[in-house]
Design a protein around this nucleic acid. Structure first.
Length: 342
DNA sequence: ATTCCACGGGAACGCGGGGACA
DNA sequence: TGTCCCCGCGTTCCCGTGGAAT
């Protein structure tokens, strides 16, 4: 049934990328100078979730590494490493420079110094979910270093620019900007069909079913592949030779739920309680949410902290906020599912 | 016009964990 | 080993801002 589970996994980078030639070439050409040992411009990659931003960034850097010996690449998910310290630490870790760095007792900006003094090969730094950084100032630090080429991935350009200061905006605006759109249904079909070909035995799934997955995923390749994966593993578990239409229906919901669950798992118990309250009783204003929350847990956090939770969950796309200040109401996000990448 | 209250940025605090030094 | 100190990070406190209600 399943021939190669790897190709169905989230984060798998295929040998061939479908329907992204223009974007691939664009990004390649921005990074090209470093193959000659010259500094490259910063690249900004934007687009909705599941459009292939992370995929092409990793693909391009992998290909560079195949072509040229003296290039390193590092990938940082800024959603998971959202503090200045963690992002810098992650980069240094990838460069193998963390041996004697410890979480404590390292002077404040030892990490930046360390990165500045790095004299290894030129390095491409991919900063994924860069709009989730708590302190975008590190972009400034990294941007100015010739040793490194930055690839900044974000959902929306405006959300990135609105949070950095003017000096940096003007420098980033002149960076190369690779814009990516949602996939069309036919393109998603091609992607799914390639994955099915490598990942599954023959005749496990029909073309018609692939089209329906593409339709359900609404342009989101990560979701589409998730649905295919979920359906395939369900068929595998049930010892079926083929994926049935029923499995497909369930898989669409399950795949959405899975993506949401990964976001929920990263919340603290207190934050999850707040989410539950909004999920069950929303839409609600912050005051009402805090009241219910206070009754639901021992040792409740303050209102201010709950507001921080709420805005964090809005950023994660778990909740949405409607209205301004006084009449603001929070409710759970229903459609479409979109969440930070893994 | 005044009052009320949510918002959100910034400073400060305290906890946990780990190094340095005796 | 014990003490002191430093750091990251979650949380709280404080406060200026602005929109809605009175």
């Amino acid at each position: 049934m399943i021939r190669d589970a790897r190709v169905l996994r989230a984060g798998f980078i295929p040998k061939e990328i479908e329907h992204r030639d223009a974007e691939l070439n664009h990004l390649s050409s921005v990074l090209e100078p470093i193959t000659n040992g010259e500094p490259a411009d910063t690249a900004i990659v934007t687009g909705p979730s599941g459009a292939g931003k992370t995929c092409i960034s990793k693909f391009v850097t992998e290909r560079l590494r195949e072509e040229v010996l003296d290039i390193e690449t590092t990938y940082v998910n800024c959603w998971r490493n959202y503090t200045r310290f963690r992002t810098l630490y992650q980069i240094l870790d990838d460069l193998g420079q963390t041996i004697d760095i410890h979480r404590q007792s390292t002077p404040h900006d030892e990490l930046v110094d360390r990165i500045q003094q790095y004299d290894g090969p030129r390095t491409v730094i991919i900063l994924d979910e860069v709009d989730q950084l708590e302190d975008p100032g590190i972009l400034y630090d990294l941007h100015s270093l010739e040793q490194f080429a930055l690839v900044c991935i974000a959902n929306k350009e405006e959300e990135l620019f609105s949070r950095v200061d003017d000096r940096l905006v003007s420098r980033l605006r002149s960076s190369e900007h690779v814009r990516m759109d949602k996939y069309h249904d036919e393109q998603l079909y091609d992607i799914l069909s390639a994955r099915a070909k490598w990942g599954l035995d023959e005749d496990v799934i029909t073309d018609d079913q692939l089209y329906r997955i593409a339709d359900a995923a609404a342009g989101d390749a990560r979701l589409a592949i998730g649905i295919l994966r979920t359906a395939a593993s369900e068929a595998d578990r049930e010892d079926e030779e083929r994926i049935t239409d029923d499995m497909l229906l369930d898989a669409a919901d399950d795949a959405r739920a899975q993506i949401r669950q990964t976001s929920l798992d990263s919340l603290t118990p207190h934050q999850q309680t707040v989410y539950e309250i909004v999920h069950e009783d929303g839409p609600l204003g912050p005051g009402a949410i805090h009241e219910r929350y206070r009754d639901a847990v021992e040792d409740p956090r303050t209102k201010r902290t709950i507001r921080t939770y709420l805005s964090k969950m809005v950023q994660y796309n778990l909740l949405e906020a409607n209205g301004t200040s006084r009449d603001r109401q929070y409710s759970v996000v229903t459609e479409p599912v979109s969440s930070p990448a893994n």
